[in-house]
Design a protein around this nucleic acid. Sequence first.
DNA 1: GTGAAAGCGCTAACAC
DNA 2: GTGTTAGCGCTTTCAC
Lengths: 334, 334
Amino acid sequence: MDKQTITIYDVAREANVSMATVSRVVNGNPNVKPATRQKVLKVIERLDYRPNAVARGLASKKTTTVGVVIPDITNIYFSTLARGIDDVATMYKYNIILANSDENSQKEVSTLDNLFAKQVDGLIYMGHNISDAVRAEFSRAKTPIVLAGSVDPDEQVASVNIDYKAAVKDAVALLLQKGAKKVAFISSAMNEPINGEYRLAGYNEALAEAKIPYDGNLVFETDYNFRAGAALWDKLQAVGADAAYVADDELSVGVLDGALDHGVKVPDDFQIITSNNTFLTEITRPQLSSISQPLYDIGAVAMRLLTKMMNKEAVTDKTVLLPFTIAERNSTKK
Amino acid sequence: MDKQTITIYDVAREANVSMATVSRVVNGNPNVKPATRQKVLKVIERLDYRPNAVARGLASKKTTTVGVVIPDITNIYFSTLARGIDDVATMYKYNIILANSDENSQKEVSTLDNLFAKQVDGLIYMGHNISDAVRAEFSRAKTPIVLAGSVDPDEQVASVNIDYKAAVKDAVALLLQKGAKKVAFISSAMNEPINGEYRLAGYNEALAEAKIPYDGNLVFETDYNFRAGAALWDKLQAVGADAAYVADDELSVGVLDGALDHGVKVPDDFQIITSNNTFLTEITRPQLSSISQPLYDIGAVAMRLLTKMMNKEAVTDKTVLLPFTIAERNSTKK
DNA sequence: GTGAAAGCGCTAACAC
DNA sequence: GTGTTAGCGCTTTCAC
């Protein structure tokens, strides 16, 4: 592979010092006489020496690499989280191994197995449904793990989120306050805790406070892409919905397009509020009102939390909730 | 870090064989008697042994990890490429270390340095401007490198692309054919070869064939985001443009929104053709006509090419061009 | 078909 | 402040 890799040994010999000394200067250990340090540094430069991180990892049992399991990097929600993660990782001198999981439990398990085999120092997991098999992998590993933008109902593993229930409650309450009578709830699989437990609970609370009975016909499960949203329009109209809370921005755009393409006026005849406040909410006409959650920050804070855990620092709260707001745009009435 | 990691040595002892034999069964080496293999496999399972990839990497000089340098994972263009890369990488048992560069040469250099220190077996680089410093890092490393969706005018390093010049020529020709008289050219920095050399050349050729003189006032450099596009509208109108070729989808959406917000009819009064055919082109109203390039495939093919190079297989063409088409939607006239 | 032993390139005591 | 010496956990000749 390598032609003639130069090692710490070569540097030591050329500089007339021991390997230990070279190691010290490379690692910024202060116990080196300045003159010696300079001498070594010169040789390092002359030989174009680059420390082998793999050997270092073997010897030190630290790889400065963290694993990142993500459902689909192509989804703006996740790519924004990932960007926050990577930026903070870089800040703390870590690299991330990124692996798309498609929320497929089997794929997740083999990915985790692989990541742990590679001795990642920590792991960030994104995914809305932690299967038992995945949970087993988690406990099998002795590596710190943090969830980003994903809830663990059991609160066994650390996580960074917003308060999904409160956020959806506020969102639906806004719709109701603006005159909506039949608010649809649209998300992906309800067996994902984030939907079935948190978001739906928020929806129900808002309904209850407005003394509106829950109607199961108004609850829809579908995929997170705009085609699915557009395809949903007929059903929405069939049940007489006059507004919708939607759990994903791309899906919301689909619903909006469905309405528009059928000549329905938004927000006059149909109101929409979405969940992630990505730039999609701003490019549509009308622009979409949305829950505003700090995705980049969720990723960043999750990674920061992970650095603390990897560093064995005391962590006060394993579950951190970041604040959210509601961004009122033009898919809800004034 | 680890409590009590069990090593290949533990397995060997428990199974009454040598480490070498355990190594053979773990690596699927056929030179093991089936009975022995079974015995070892049993012990591996009982002990829940997981081979340490770092140690393996040190001994074998292969990490089954490739570095991926990407300008910004948050941009759909790049995240789609990345998805193709990761899928093929997974298929060939590689992991990817993902690093955002923001197309900052300095950051790229330190990232590359880091990636090579980690002994990645190969590298995929995305970025439209290969600085001299980056080029120096490239040649310093003895690792195979492939560019994905990014051109190297010098053709020193392998790359997978579409024919940008021909694509833009076709796109602009379409605009012209549909009656446009003053077609604007909008991209990011013209000092990036992909813009200044390839795309602009295609633009010029289309103009020449239609016998329309080149007008520098119609050429705009800006950022790739929708705000920049909307902000550009006034200038576009000031120079009297009646159509635009735009190098990025998000930017195109901005231009479209700018036009719409000013009451301009698209495509009647202003036509737009964009470059990447991401789902953004389908969610807008009207939908955007676009060059259709197989982003996912570009990533996938780039990774496939890299596996060949890492495997020291013969590679016929270092530069592979994938086919493109033009998707006519509703931002160009019928 | 299997084992012994020498590294891979580095860190981390420990000694001086 | 610097050197010596074990490993880290595995692969890989080379014998047998």
